[in-house]
Design a protein around this nucleic acid. Sequence first.
DNA 1: CGCTGTGTTATTGAATACAATCACCGCTAC
DNA 2: GTAGCGGTGATTGTATTCAATAACACAGCG
Lengths: 254, 254
Amino acid sequence: MERSPVRPSRPETDAAAPQRVLDALRRDIILGALRPGARVTEAALAATYGVSRIPVREALRALEAEGFVESKPYAGSTVAKIPLDDAEDLFAVRGVIEATIARRAALRAAAHFTGEAPSTEWWTARRALAAILDDGDRAVAADALADLPDLNIRFHLGVAELSGSASLAALLRQISGKIEWLYAADVDNRGKQSWGEHRLIIAAIDAGNADEADRLMAGHVGSSQRGYMERFAAPDGTGTGAVGATGTDAAARG
Amino acid sequence: MERSPVRPSRPETDAAAPQRVLDALRRDIILGALRPGARVTEAALAATYGVSRIPVREALRALEAEGFVESKPYAGSTVAKIPLDDAEDLFAVRGVIEATIARRAALRAAAHFTGEAPSTEWWTARRALAAILDDGDRAVAADALADLPDLNIRFHLGVAELSGSASLAALLRQISGKIEWLYAADVDNRGKQSWGEHRLIIAAIDAGNADEADRLMAGHVGSSQRGYMERFAAPDGTGTGAVGATGTDAAARG
DNA sequence: CGCTGTGTTATTGAATACAATCACCGCTAC
DNA sequence: GTAGCGGTGATTGTATTCAATAACACAGCG
């Protein structure tokens, strides 16, 4: 059957395609299936995921903005270098961002005690957080440690949504991707003892105790940082171990 | 009227087109030419800039990642709401990021005293910074205050490059865009007295004095924050003025 | 008179087609 | 033997075209 003369194809719109490719690619990079320096060509990815190059392009550009790939015009994209040197600084900044988020979430909860009605988005975020906490507890009980990294990210992003600050949530999203990348570079998770701290943080937020939420979250991130530093022990001498004035300030405050 | 059968056009590749559209759009949003809530359609922008919808798409997606526009599938893009409520938190986080950057830049300079040779990129960044400082001084002398906001951004991003931390530089880039947006929402610059502090910061960095660089940069951002807060004085009561434990901690440290 | 359902329109999403550039390889000259 | 150089292939960048969805207006009905 001949086709109509000016219709060489039939574009099938699938608005979720770029998101799928983006998530899959980012997971592959963070988990190490794609090593730093590896070339990622649009055509290959398009064939892999069964879509055209256009959605693949979108995903690659998003990953470039997130810092996971590097692109040069007409020269293609490669997986970026893992920011190992930035580890301590990233933890320090993350500590401040997360503590600020926790504080703000608690202030928002406190406002609910003084008569202000919780918004719909707040309830949605709070319910999602409860589900995440339950899932994490189940995973800990079943020793399904492989599920914890993903749940951990979702917990922290959930708190960010609870805080209502889109700007801080965006910053956290950007930085936590990098940190998960650091972790997955050698080990896949930092054990389950830190999961228990999550309920304490949520309790402080629910109670509207801003100082306590700030302090607990800072300590939570700080112990995470210490666990990382003990494991990888800064083989290079770029001042690590002495740079900690800001870092420990943020992590050990309170 | 039939057209030539298989050649309806001739794509002219211009790899810089998305960047041009991105920069122009972001400037229009930050400077207020495009108000929050305004609809931005791909076709209109394509006509405006004389390119196809594809580069416009790329620019819009990048702006979405940066938080300046919001998009819904098949529904179009609108300019996002100015994050006024996040102002204090954004300043707090920016203070920590910038102080960390200054500290790291100073540590890098200190390494040069102990025998490590400066890299080519370091020299390039240092030279660019010197030029920016001179340009700013000239602008201050000529009372060309309109040039200061742009020079200010370039100064801070230049220090980020000097620090050598691509991750922190990316975070700063994201957050400083938001802060400039806040400023430009009502006033265009915060005067010229703060420009003089820049040379002091660079002097501390060049001397390799990490604590001093950290302290000066934190104070610099802190006074910027205080200037903003005095001007806009939180008309809404979202806890502003009491949220400052983290904020003032980062801003007034030292 | 208000509301709902439907048709229309405008706008985005994706697939294909073509142009421009870069990287690599072999070749030639010294 | 090595450095410089041109050709060739591969890959990205953009323009056009068609499909699908959302927003909107209007007519019909309660």
